[in-house]
Simulated scan of single mutants.
Amino acid sequence: TCRSALANSLNQAIEQLGGIASMDSWNVDESQDQIQHRAIGLATVPAIHWQNRPTFQQVVEFTGHR
């Protein structure tokens, strides 16, 4: 059930973009997939384009004084 639901949702997304045959003309807003960084201190880091990353990532967030 899960597999068919996933396949159906992907097929619907492709159809909404105009089909696989017109992939070169898909109008996609890449800014929706940008990686946003949280600044620590005074410096800021601009957003970067999405990248295919490994499935395991570690996120560390300090919310108070250590």
Rank of each mutant, 00 (worst) to 15 (best):
C2D: 15
R3Y: 03
R3K: 09
R3I: 06
R3V: 11
S4E: 07
S4G: 04
S4H: 00
A5N: 07
A5P: 05
L6R: 13
L6E: 07
A7V: 11
N8A: 12
N8S: 08
N8R: 03
N8E: 05
N8C: 02
S9I: 03
S9L: 07
S9V: 04
L10M: 04
L10V: 05
L10P: 00
N11F: 02
N11R: 11
N11Q: 02
N11P: 00
N11A: 08
Q12W: 02
Q12I: 02
Q12R: 05
A13W: 02
I14E: 03
I14T: 09
E15P: 00
Q16S: 15
Q16Y: 03
Q16G: 09
L17N: 14
L17I: 08
G18Q: 08
G18N: 01
G18Y: 15
I20A: 12
A21K: 09
A21I: 05
M23H: 10
M23A: 11
D24M: 06
D24S: 15
D24A: 14
S25N: 13
S25L: 01
S25P: 00
W26F: 10
W26C: 06
W26V: 12
N27F: 01
V28L: 13
V28H: 04
D29I: 06
E30M: 07
E30L: 08
E30D: 07
S31Q: 09
D33I: 09
D33T: 01
D33K: 03
Q34W: 03
I35E: 11
I35C: 12
Q36H: 04
Q36W: 00
H37S: 06
H37Q: 10
A39V: 14
A39M: 06
A39Y: 08
I40Q: 05
G41F: 05
L42F: 10
L42V: 01
L42Y: 08
A43T: 03
T44I: 12
V45I: 06
P46D: 07
P46I: 01
A47N: 11
A47Q: 13
A47G: 02
A47D: 10
I48M: 04
W50C: 14
W50E: 09
Q51V: 14
Q51L: 10
Q51I: 06
R53Y: 00
P54K: 01
T55G: 06
Q57H: 04
Q57T: 01
Q58C: 09
V59R: 14
V59N: 00
V59P: 00
V60F: 14
V60K: 10
E61C: 13
F62M: 10
F62W: 08
F62P: 12
F62C: 15
G64T: 05
G64D: 09
H65F: 05
H65M: 11
H65Y: 12
H65R: 08
R66T: 06
R66W: 09
R66G: 12
